[in-house]
């Protein structure tokens, strides 16, 4: 059985409507926002024990943030070679998503980082403070697409 089918099975057996597809170097599992936590729990109970990145992509044109957790396993060597992208979309004007720190403690600093760069609020995070930036920089949410840094031309 291909690995992607196993993921599909995990998702369907937990009753989650997930779009599972194969990406370049990862397996994408896109779930609706309501089933976000259940999907995470389903993955965690199947041996995916840590979060590699918390990636947020700002699709300004569509008005959404894509929140993606890349999870994998350390303890189960068979799973270690796969990266699962658990992703969902949240509206840009109300960026709130459930925190997964309770399920994967390794996401703690990654969520704090995403919070300060995008202003995405992770509900239930035990210690949601900026981690890298000063407060005055955090206010700009620098990684959002509407914060633009100037590039210089090639003529002096």
């Amino acid at each position: 059985m291909a690995f992607i089918d196993r993921i599909k099975e995990i998702m369907s057996s937990s009753g989650i409507e997930a779009e599972v597809s194969e990406g370049k170097g990862f397996i994408k599992v896109k779930v609706p926002l309501e089933q976000w936590e259940e999907a995470a729990k389903a993955l965690a109970s199947n041996g995916f024990d840590h979060v590699k990145t918390v990636t947020i992509v700002d699709y300004k044109a569509r008005g959404v943030f894509e929140v993606a957790y890349h999870v994998s396993s350390f303890l189960d060597t068979g799973l270690a070679k796969y990266i699962i992208e658990l992703s969902t979309e949240i509206p840009r004007d109300n960026p709130v998503v459930k925190s997964l720190v309770g399920i994967w403690p390794s996401a703690e600093f990654l969520e704090r980082e995403s919070f300060e760069f995008f202003g995405v609020v992770f509900e239930g995070h035990p210690d949601l403070r900026p981690i890298l930036l000063l407060d005055e920089v955090v206010a700009k949410h620098p990684l959002r697409k509407d914060f633009v840094v100037k590039e210089e031309g090639i003529f002096r």
Partner: peptide
């Protein structure tokens, strides 16, 4: 979108 990882001196580095 592509994801790649490598084992750097201090550990796994991952790019999206």
């Amino acid at each position: 979108r592509a994801i790649a990882r490598a084992e750097a001196g201090r550990g796994e580095v991952i790019y999206v």
